[in-house]
Design a protein around this nucleic acid. Structure first.
Length: 118
DNA sequence: GAGGTGACGACCC
DNA sequence: TGGGTCGCCACCT
């Protein structure tokens, strides 16, 4: 069966890149959409990263999208985890979350462009 | 081919 | 610190 959709003939190359980076996020760490976008060379495409996360739901492989927050450390996509709040998932990994905001964001923040020393 | 959308980022008050 | 506005680029219809 062709389960069409999602992949879309590899057009989602950019999306795929995003998924790869998100999967590289270490346990107990979080990153921002802008950090991923910048790592991919599209710092201004931060919004596209969020869009990729939207498609991540259709991805067969587990994408820790809950580890991706905005530059403010706010759980912008928590609404998508209605069944499983991001806060709970993050706290389970040791990330302190208060009022939909990541505590110690500076400490748990994981920048691919820095950690990976691109 | 064109228009609209959006899980954002930076700037300003 | 918190909230509001503009810009930006890729995906979808």
């Amino acid at each position: 069966m062709q389960t069409h959709n999602i992949e879309k003939r590899g057009q989602g190359d950019f999306f795929d890149q995003v998924y790869q980076v998100v999967r590289l996020i270490p346990y107990g760490r979080v990153t921002s959409y802008g950090a991923i976008a910048r790592y991919l060379g599209a710092a201004r495409s931060s919004r596209i990263v969020g869009w990729a996360m939207n498609a991540a739901h259709s991805q067969a492989e587990p994408v820790p999208a809950h580890r991706v927050v905005n530059s403010s450390g706010l759980l912008s996509g928590k609404h998508f985890f209605k069944e499983r709040p991001m806060q709970e998932l993050l706290e389970e990994e040791g990330v302190q979350v208060k009022n939909d905001r990541v505590q110690r964001f500076r400490e748990v923040f994981w920048d691919p462009g820095t950690e990976l020393t691109l």
